[in-house]
Amino acid sequence: MFEQLVLRLIHCILSFGVFVKQCTSYFIHFGLVFKQKSSVDFIKADARQINKLPVHIGIVVLEEKLSYTDIANIIIWSLALGISCISVYDVNGEFKRNHAVLKEVVAKKQKEILHDESTKYSICLHTNNQTDLYLENGYSNNCKIDIQLVGPEDGRRELVKLAQNLSREVATHQRKLEDITIQHIDNILQGTNKLPDPDLIIRFGTVDSLLGFLPWQIRLTEILTHQTHDGLTYKSFISLLHSYGDTDQRFGR
């Protein structure tokens, strides 16, 4: 009984600590909220300040309430920063299912944040490796961002499907057993879009886990956490990118 009480108390204290930390970070960012409406030039200047930009960001949302507007903000900021690929994941695959809604919100945010420059950028939304590919404002290919919407079926289950196909091919002598290599698996999983593995995951929510997000693709991915994506400010997003830019990888050496 006594121990249980103490354990409860410790958990309460920890939760309170997290809450206080959240509040302080909120106040730090509060004064800078207006910067959210930054112009493209402002964002580009920020990009130059960051030591190393990720090529592909995985956005893993582990929260009950999903906010399409905040995801759209992240997409547009990344576009202006020069990031070329974003994967968006939630455990129920809701973003993936409602890709039409997300597309609409992104289009709106694009005009809102980028103003007249918005036509210079194109956004490519994929909901799977092959299907449902559509382009917006495809005037220029110089500033293009690929958005890959990911659900739980793209994780372990995609590997199962792959194993199944490979077995079939080997059993019918279309493929040799030795041809099943890491490289080959990797090539197939990259699909037709040939998206690189994510180099940064930003995980939103209080669960400290990845809950099934693309297991094959995340072997070298930096995993950063932020309390919530709801109302994420530009400033917080940039500071996450800064902490990514300051890490250095050794690749096993």
Binding site: L166, S167, V170, I180, I185
Partner: peptide
Amino acid sequence: MKEIAEGV
């Protein structure tokens, strides 16, 4: 995956 393919 190789083991499985062989099993099949």
